[in-house]
Design a protein around this nucleic acid. Sequence first.
RNA 1: GGUUCCUUGGCCGAGUGGCUAGGCAACGGUCUGCAAAACCGCAUACAGCAGUUCGAAUCUGCUAGGAACCUCCA
Length: 490
Amino acid sequence: MEHKFFIYNTLTRKKEKFVPIHNPYVGMYVCGPTVYGDGHLGHARPAITFDLLFRYLQHLGYKVRYVRNITDVGHLEHDADEGEDKIAKKARLESKEPMEVVQYYLNRYHKAMEALNVLPPSIEPHASGHIIEQIEFIKKILKSGYAYESEGSVYFDVEKYSKRYNYGELSGRNIDELLETTRVLDGQSEKHRSADFALWKKAQPEHIMRWPSPWSDGFPGWHLECSTMGTKYLGEEFDIHGGGMDLIFPHHECEIAQSTAALGHQTVRYWMHNNMITINGQKMGKSLGNFITLDEFFTGKHDLLKQAYSPMTIRFFILQAQYRSTVDFSNEALQASEKGMQRLMEAYRRLNSLTASEQSTIDVKGLRKSCEDAMSDDLNSPIVISHLFDSVKSINAVKDGKATISSEDLEELKSVFKLFIEDILGLYDESAIGNNSSTEAYKKAVDLLLDIRMQAKKNKDWATSDKIRNELTASGFTINDTKDGFEWSI
RNA sequence: GGUUCCUUGGCCGAGUGGCUAGGCAACGGUCUGCAAAACCGCAUACAGCAGUUCGAAUCUGCUAGGAACCUCCA
């Protein structure tokens, strides 16, 4: 299998040709959500970006194992010394078991992801389910000498590590500066340096999420789960690791350090990072309090939203930007996406009612390759969409009788549209009506009404024809007359 | 303060040296009983200044504005 698929590697800061380690198998790991709150628009971005990657890799013929973790141990809220993890805190506030909180938000996350047509990953490991593995991982780092125990906690020794390896290579941070600016630590701290990070944290008495370990009853550090679970399920070396750009430092930098310290080599070939979604030019984030949850988008219930936006509108909106660009949220932009997507899906539907002719006056041949080239250029979904829109014009021209299409070209166009719209971009027709026997009957009934209207039109009985159209419109249907008939949708 | 990055027409958003992005909106027109849909036409955009070049939105420098990371964050 040989493909020219280029992806931007954060580690080298350039686009590189994708070559899997164990062709045709591909391992990809993506940082998933910390489940202590509802998912917001920002969470949709990596989910959709890496869903696009997952789908495209499969289209290219790779056998992909996609691992997306669930962080349910909770990252530390503030400085480690006064640490209380987010899930424990939320649990206390809501008087619930931590795992009850986790389950609640995880269910809601899954529901939102399903609505966005994000395929479930192959494995969705929980950090809390891999405490033993994480402890073993810490032991390896201790054994290699890059960690130290202090007051029941274990910390990673960044300075020592940086003498042999390159701490900061992913984020472009200068280790000397990092160490320089963090040199002053009061003697009370357990950490030798503040640049050091926790691998194991001793739990305070009030800390309810805790597990036994050789060092103390406590919990694993924030970065460890990804190193541990990534290598557990994908091997000591795997192809792709993804996540949001805000995770580059310190999260992914620490991951590289941990894995390298434990195993003696790096584990990840290609690091991919999606950019942020902004709101008024500023990052949408939990800590900034300027986020809009996915449910709020779906229902339109938020002060900043002028209307509800369907899951597919959100998905299309995100796919209209390349994943490494920021996307600025605004009602105008979302409305433009909604309209545009409707036009695209309308044309896709129309494809099934086109009549083929002997010859084509439109050009269909280049489309498949153009779309593939765009996808292969670091997942350039906006270019794919622009190519599809070019074909929308052709489809409409045929529909209007201003152009013709051969049956061969029509089949090709249908095939390419299905492939890119449904299989790769993961868009589905939200206004499509199912195909079971009851909807068949319902469709026939609507068709019958509109046939009667056509008859009335022929007789210039505008009162009857307008009545039928108006009543149906009032019930939520959209009726469009065509050259020699009608189209309807709901 | 340090590191990195961004600034494209009314809005969103591709493009990284010469050749059309695309979508939405607006405007004009065609079609139509009306409406809708569709189609056609339409913006000589690239933050500012200077430089490199036969030629720059695209390279270099400076200026202005903005962002991300440096602390949990997708």
